[in-house]
Simulated scan of single mutants.
Amino acid sequence: MEGAYIAGTVKQFKYYKSLGDKTISQLSFSELQWSPNVESNSIAIMVKHIVGNMLSRWTHFLTEDGEKTWRNRDDEFVDSYNSKDELLEAWHNGWDCLFEAIMPLNEIDLEKIIFIRNQGHTVTEAINRQLAHYSYHVGQIVFLGKLIKGSQWQSLSIPKGKSTNYNQEKFSKPKGKRHFTDDL
Rank of each mutant, 00 (worst) to 15 (best):
M1V: 06
E2K: 04
G3S: 08
I6E: 01
A7Q: 12
K11M: 08
K11W: 01
Q12K: 12
F13Y: 12
Y16C: 07
S18F: 06
S18Q: 14
L19S: 01
G20D: 10
D21V: 05
K22I: 03
S25T: 09
L27H: 06
S30L: 08
E31T: 05
V38C: 08
S40R: 02
S40N: 04
S42V: 02
A44I: 04
V47S: 10
V47T: 10
I50L: 15
V51A: 14
V51W: 11
L55F: 05
S56P: 10
H60V: 09
L62A: 11
T63D: 09
D65W: 04
E67R: 15
K68C: 10
T69H: 12
W70F: 14
R73T: 13
D74Q: 14
D75H: 15
D75N: 15
D75V: 15
D75A: 15
E76I: 03
V78G: 11
V78Y: 13
S80R: 15
S80V: 14
Y81T: 08
S83D: 15
K84P: 13
D85H: 13
D85T: 15
L87N: 08
W91P: 11
W91K: 10
G94F: 01
C97Q: 13
L98Q: 03
E100P: 03
E100K: 14
E100W: 01
A101L: 06
A101E: 06
A101V: 00
I102W: 00
I102L: 07
M103I: 14
P104V: 07
L105P: 03
N106V: 13
D109M: 04
L110M: 13
E111V: 11
I113R: 08
F115G: 02
F115N: 12
I116C: 12
N118T: 13
Q119K: 10
G120D: 05
T122N: 09
V123T: 06
V123A: 09
E125F: 04
E125T: 09
A126F: 02
I127W: 00
N128R: 07
N128H: 10
Q130D: 12
H133V: 03
Y134G: 08
H137D: 12
I141H: 00
I141F: 02
V142P: 03
L144C: 01
L144M: 09
K146Y: 02
K146R: 12
L147K: 01
L147M: 07
I148L: 01
S151M: 02
W153F: 11
W153M: 00
S155Q: 06
P159M: 05
N165M: 07
N165T: 07
Q168I: 10
K170S: 07
S172G: 10
K173M: 08
G176R: 02
G176E: 09
F180A: 11
D182K: 10
D183K: 11
D183W: 06
L184S: 11
